[in-house]
Design a protein around this nucleic acid. Structure first.
Lengths: 129, 129
DNA sequence: CTCCTTGAACTACCAAGGTAATACTACCGA
DNA sequence: TCGGTAGTATTACCTTGGTAGTTCAAGGAG
């Protein structure tokens, strides 16, 4: 498992692939055109680079390429969050949560959800004891 | 206010500057040499690039440059966390916390700390009502 | 069978991060 | 005054992400 760190566009492309499991270049282009307005060749080039990198794979079907993600969204999240965690918070998740609470005004509903999350986490740990 | 996104080395340099408020090229180099083993010119070049970018400033003192950070660690954290939040979790902080709990095994002590954090957050909100 | 269209391949740039050798300058000591 | 040394400026190169024009190949239309 290498470093699955994705750039902006790469991530956008991956999201399309994650959403529909597989897609042609044209489909990806169409899905992203409204927000990005990129040339189809840009998408195609990026997909090839991403294949070199190992995060997508393609299969030929009916004269065009059908791409598919080879890494899960969660795997990407894991590596990228870990990276940011190490860089910015010396690997301390609580410090990141603290920053989140202080900086991104989390409303009461969110706080409730988080509290529930923590309760679940503790409940799971209780079970294994 | 631009995007204060820092690369790996840039962030390491900033940490030195944040730690001691200001430092010469040689001091930064010395502080990072053990872990990175970079040439002094590399640090100097990077510092100049960072100055172009606006995240540090220098003053000449006694024939050498004394650099100082012009952005706070918290400002950098804010922009970088926000970016990751938007990219990976559609801007939902709770989703990030959820990921953190699920993925980075947070031990019971951490959970307690987080719970306390959330309590404080709610307490603050209660006060303002 | 030939030409057009479509989509992939190739090539080419640009910016930013990173890394560093080399060139220059100015001070200090002999 | 002359040369070494210290420290900055210049220049250069590599990688990755991003963006796209141009070329090429193969299937479909006439």
């Amino acid at each position: 498992m290498g470093k699955h760190t994705l750039g902006e566009l790469q991530h956008a492309i991956m999201q399309v692939l994650w959403a529909r499991d597989e897609a042609t270049v044209a489909e990806v282009h169409e899905a992203l055109f409204d927000e990005r307005g990129l040339a189809p060749t840009t998408i195609a080039t990026m997909l090839r680079k991403m294949e070199d990198k190992g995060v997508v794979a393609h299969r030929v079907e009916d004269r065009h390429f059908v791409y598919q993600a080879t890494v899960s969204e969660d795997a990407v999240r894991s590596t990228m969050v870990s990276e940011l965690l190490d860089r910015l918070f010396a690997g301390d998740p609580a410090a990141l949560v603290s920053h989140l609470v202080a900086d991104h005004d989390i409303d009461e509903a969110e706080v409730e959800r988080l509290r529930a999350l923590l309760n679940h986490a503790e409940a799971r740990k209780d079970e294994n004891r």
